[in-house]
Structure formats: C-alpha cells, structure tokens
C-alpha cells in the first residue's frame, strides 16, 4: 500500500513515455490512480513535443520546386535477378577458361619448342636480309678515303683472321670430334 503513495521519479516517467510496458505492475497501478504523476507525464511529453514543433516552426520551407525526373533504366547489376544471372555467367566463363587451359596444355607444351625455333629462324632471316642489303648498297672503297675510315690493314685477309668462317671454328671441330650435333 505504501508503494502506491510514492510518486514516480522523473526518470521513471521518462521511461514510461518511451515505453509504457516498461513499468512494473505497482507503478502502473500508481499511475492510474495518481493525477499528479499523470500530470507530470503529460507535461514532460508536452515539453519534448514542443521542442519538435519549434524546430518545425524555425526550419525554412524549401523554396525549390520538387524535382521530377524521368526514370533512368535501372542498371542491370543492381536488380535482384541481374546480379544472380551475372554471377552465374561469370562462374560459367571461368569454368570454360579453366577447362580449355587444361585440355590444350599438352598440345601447347609440344608447340612451344617448335614456336621458339620458328621465331629464331625468322629473326635470323630478317637480320641476314638487313646485312645483305648493306653489303649490296655499300659505298665504293674511294669513299672510305674521303671519310677517313679506310685503313690499310682492314682488308679481307685481316677480317678472315679476326672472324674466321663458322665451319672452320675450333668449337665446331671439337663437337664433331666428340660426336655431338649442334642441332
């Protein structure tokens, strides 16, 4: 009975404003019988509501007209169906690439050597064409006197001594003697 006479604290009234079910049965009973506490509750409620009303009163009105824009087509990936389908496609593509990679792996290994020798042959051929072109369009010997690049000692015999023909070099001879093949 004593509990019923004790008024609700301000903090309890605020808890009651947030959620009425938060009160104990004794507090509920007191509130239903006590006009003072009900008055306090209404006053606090009024104060917080006033704060909201003043905010509304002191907020400006938007002066800009409400923008009405034509709807843009929704990006495919943002639709619920779209992203699932895209994910499935991505998985399928990844699977195909992986399968293709493994299927052609032995063939690729076999081809890689052949490709390498073909590429070497092609670059060799290109280099030789450039050298031949230079030899064919070489300046006459007289020009070497004019440019000062002529040297008596740099004749064919001297060059043969410095850079012997490939077929006669010692390394090739050594290989042949030991029975190795260069290719």
């Amino acid at each position: 009975m004593n509990q019923k006479r004790i008024h609700l604290e301000e903090d309890r009234i605020m808890a009651l404003i947030i959620d009425e079910t938060d009160l104990s049965p004794v507090e509920k009973e007191h509130l239903s019988e006590c006009a003072d506490c009900r008055g306090k509750k209404e006053k606090i409620q009024e104060e917080f509501a006033l704060l909201g009303n003043l905010a509304e009163k002191f907020a400006p009105e938007s002066k800009r007209p409400v923008l009405r824009k034509k709807r843009e087509p929704r990006p495919f990936l943002t639709s619920a169906f779209g992203w699932k389908l895209s994910l499935a496609s991505a998985v399928a593509v990844l699977f195909t690439i992986t399968a293709t990679w493994y299927f052609f792996k032995p063939l690729r290994l076999q081809n890689s050597r052949q490709n390498a020798s073909e590429w070497t042959a092609a670059t060799d051929h290109e280099l030789m064409s450039e050298i031949n072109a230079m030899v064919e369009t070489a300046f006459p010997r007289t020009y070497l006197y004019i440019t000062g690049e002529y040297h008596k000692g740099l004749n064919d015999e001297f060059i043969m001594f410095i850079v012997p023909p490939v077929n006669n070099d010692s390394a090739s001879r050594l290989f042949r003697m030991k029975g190795h093949a260069t290719c």
């Binding site: 938007s62 800009r64 409400v66 923008l67 843009e72 929704r74 943002t78």
Partner: peptide, 18 residues
C-alpha cells in the same frame, strides 16, 4: 538541405527496386 533532398529522392527513384 535543398540540394541533398533532391539527391535523396533521385537516389530513391533510381534504386527503388532494391
């Protein structure tokens, strides 16, 4: 506030499906 309000509705408009 006016600028942002317009942006909010534009975003809502374009992503209503989500």
């Amino acid at each position: 506030a006016e600028d942002i309000t317009q942006e909010v509705f534009l975003q809502a408009f374009n992503h209503l499906g989500t």
